[in-house]
Amino acid sequence: DRHTIHIGDITIHLEGFSEEELKLAEELIKRGIHLEEVKRILEELYR
């Protein structure tokens, strides 16, 4: 499954994450956390 996060003019595609995980990812990215770090956090929390 493919999910999309929109932040301003930026569109990020993250596959294989639930709606809850994507909301967390979006919040972290909006707070300035680097995408690679966001992915690592999600994997630690949900895998």
Rank of each mutant, 00 (worst) to 15 (best):
D9R: 03
E36K: 05
I10Q: 10
E15V: 13
E26R: 15
R47I: 14
G8M: 05
E26P: 01
L42Q: 00
L35F: 11
S18V: 05
R2G: 12
E37A: 08
L45I: 12
E19S: 13
H6Y: 05
D1F: 01
H13W: 11
H34T: 14
E19R: 13
L28V: 01
H34A: 13
E21F: 15
E43D: 09
L28A: 01
H6K: 12
I10K: 09
E20L: 10
Y46P: 01
V38M: 07
E44H: 03
H6S: 08
D1N: 10
R2F: 13
E26K: 14
D1M: 01
S18C: 10
H3C: 02
A25L: 09
E26F: 15
R47W: 07
L42G: 00
E19C: 14
E37H: 05
G16A: 08
L35E: 04
H34K: 13
E27D: 07
E44S: 03
I29R: 02
K23F: 08
D1I: 10
E26M: 14
E37R: 09
E19V: 13
I29G: 01
I29F: 15
E15C: 12
R40A: 06
E20P: 06
L35G: 03
E19K: 12
D9W: 12
I33H: 05
K39P: 01
H13S: 12
V38I: 09
L24K: 05
G16I: 13
F17G: 06
E20C: 12
R47F: 09
V38L: 11
Y46I: 14
E20A: 09
E36W: 15
L35K: 03
K30G: 08
H3V: 14
T4V: 10
H13F: 11
L24A: 04
R47E: 07
I7V: 10
T4K: 03
R40P: 00
I5Y: 01
E15M: 14
E21V: 14
I29L: 14
R2L: 11
I41M: 11
A25I: 13
E27S: 12
I33V: 10
E37F: 15
I12K: 05
E19F: 14
G32Q: 02
T11L: 06
R2P: 14
I5G: 05
H34Y: 05
L28F: 12
I7W: 10
E36L: 13
E43W: 15
L28T: 01
E19N: 10
K30D: 02
L24H: 12
L45W: 09
I12A: 06
L14T: 03
F17H: 04
E37Y: 15
A25V: 12
F17S: 03
Y46Q: 11
R2E: 11
I33F: 15
G8A: 08
I12Y: 14
H13G: 05
T4D: 08
Y46T: 03
D9Q: 08
I41V: 05
L28N: 00
I5L: 02
Y46M: 11
I10Y: 11
R47M: 14
I41R: 02
E15H: 12
E15R: 09
K30Q: 09
T11W: 08
E15Q: 10
I7T: 06
D9S: 12
R2Q: 11
E26Q: 13
I10W: 13
K30R: 15
G32R: 01
D9K: 03
E44Y: 15
L35I: 13
F17E: 02
E36H: 07
E27I: 14
K39E: 03
A25Y: 04
E27W: 15
E43G: 03
L42K: 00
E27R: 13
H3F: 12
G8P: 04
E43N: 07
L22D: 02
G32Y: 15
K23Q: 11
A25T: 03
V38A: 02
Y46F: 14
E37M: 13
L14E: 01
I12T: 04
A25F: 12
H34Q: 12
A25D: 00
Y46G: 03
F17Q: 02
T4Y: 02
E15N: 12
L28E: 00
H13Q: 11
D9C: 07
L14R: 01
G16T: 10
T11K: 07
D1K: 04
E20F: 13
G8S: 07
E36N: 08
T4L: 04
S18K: 08
I5M: 04
I7L: 10
L45P: 00
T4P: 11
E43I: 14
R40Y: 05
R31M: 08
E43L: 15
R2T: 13
I41Y: 05
R31Q: 07
H13N: 06
G32P: 02
A25W: 07
H34W: 08
T4C: 12
G32F: 15
E37W: 15
I33Q: 02
L42H: 00
I7K: 04
E15Y: 15
I5Q: 03
L35Q: 03
E37N: 03
I33L: 13
K39W: 15
T4H: 10
F17V: 06
L22N: 05
I10A: 03
L24F: 11
V38K: 00
